Simulated scan of single mutants.
Amino acid sequence: MKKKFISFLIALNLYGAFPSWYYNIKNTQKQKKAFVEIMLPLIERENQKIKKLREKIIQIFNDPYFLTNKKNLSFLATIAKKYKIKNLTNKEEYLKKIDIIPPSLALAQAALESGWGKSRFVKQANNIFGHWEYSNKGLKPKSKYEYIKIDYSIKIFPSLENSIAAYMLNLNRNPAYKNFRNLRYKYKKTNKLFTGIIAANTMINYSQLHEKYVTLLKQMIKKNHWEKYDKALSE
C-alpha cells in the first residue's frame, strides 16, 4: 500500500487501530516498512500539534502586556495544568516541556514496546507504548504465576493517535524524563539537531531494562536508518 494513500486514510481518521491487512503481511521487511508508513504520519501529525502550541506560547510571551490579557492567562493556566508547569509566567518552563519528540525515537519505542504493533496490548487496547494505569478500567496483563498480584492495568486508548499523544505528553511532563527535556532544550538553544540517538541516552527510566533498553533503542534506530526522519525536521 502506497505511503500517500496511507497518509490520506490517516487524514480521514480511518486508522483508529492497525488495519487487518497489516497483520496479514508475511514478509518481515515488508511488515516493518508498513509499520513505519502507518506510524510515521501519526507521529508527525502529533508533533505538528505540539509545534503549533509551542509557537502560540512564544507568541503570548512575546507580548509585553500578556499579564493584562485574561484570555491569555486563562490559556496559560490550562496548559500549565496539562503539562504540570509550576510557574504560570515562566517562559522557559513552557519551552522545556512543550516541544516535539524525535520521530526516530518514537518509532523505536513504538516498535520495541509493541512488538512492531503485534502485541496483545496493541490489538486489544491500541496501547503502543506500554502505558499503565492503576485502575480496573484497563486491560489486565497476564501473569505467568497465579500467586503474583498485579495491581495495575494496561491503559485502553480509543485510537493509535491517542496512544501517541499520551506517549508524547508523558515524555514532556513526567519527572522521570527531566534529563530528556533539559538536553533537548540545550540542543534547541544552540540550534543543534536533537536526534533520536541522542535522546535515547535519556530513556534509562522508561523500562526496567534500563541501560540495555537504551542500547536496544539505539540499535533499532541505526539498523532501520530512522535518523533521516529527524533530519527532515531541520530541512
Rank of each mutant, 00 (worst) to 15 (best):
N27T: 06
Y15K: 07
N205A: 14
S207K: 06
D230Q: 11
I85R: 02
K52I: 12
L40G: 13
S135E: 08
A17Y: 15
A110Y: 02
L53V: 07
I43A: 00
K149N: 09
L233M: 13
K96E: 14
Y65P: 14
R173G: 04
A110D: 02
A106K: 01
L42C: 01
K91I: 00
K188W: 15
Q48M: 12
A176E: 06
S143F: 09
I25D: 03
K228I: 13
F121V: 07
Y94E: 05
L160W: 02
S114C: 03
D151V: 12
K70V: 13
P175V: 08
E161W: 10
H225R: 13
S74G: 09
F121W: 07
E133R: 07
I58A: 13
E211G: 07
K222W: 02
G130P: 04
E133T: 10
A34H: 03
Q124M: 15
D63V: 09
F8M: 09
W226A: 02
T215K: 12
E211Q: 14
N182W: 02
G138W: 08
E161L: 14
I50L: 12
N13R: 02
K86P: 03
P64N: 06
I38N: 01
K26A: 03
F75R: 00
K26R: 10
K49F: 11
G138C: 07
N24V: 05
W21F: 15
M203S: 01
I25P: 04
T190R: 14
K192T: 14
L193V: 15
K149W: 07
S153Q: 08
K144R: 15
Y65F: 10
K71L: 12
S104A: 15
K4E: 15
T68K: 11
Y206L: 00
M203E: 01
I10W: 05
P141T: 08
K52F: 08
W21I: 09
I148W: 09
L171Y: 02
Y187R: 01
P103G: 03
K155I: 07
F129Y: 12
R181T: 03
G138H: 02
E227H: 10
K189A: 13
I101L: 10
L9C: 09
F194Q: 06
S163I: 10
I57D: 05
K178L: 12
E113S: 00
Q124F: 10
G130M: 04
P41G: 11
A108H: 08
Q124N: 06
I164K: 11
I58V: 12
E227P: 13
E37L: 02
L169P: 06
L171T: 08
S159A: 00
D151H: 13
I100A: 03
Q29E: 13
I101K: 07
N24I: 09
H210T: 13
S20F: 11
K26E: 04
L42D: 02
H131Q: 12
L107H: 00
Y22V: 04
I43P: 03
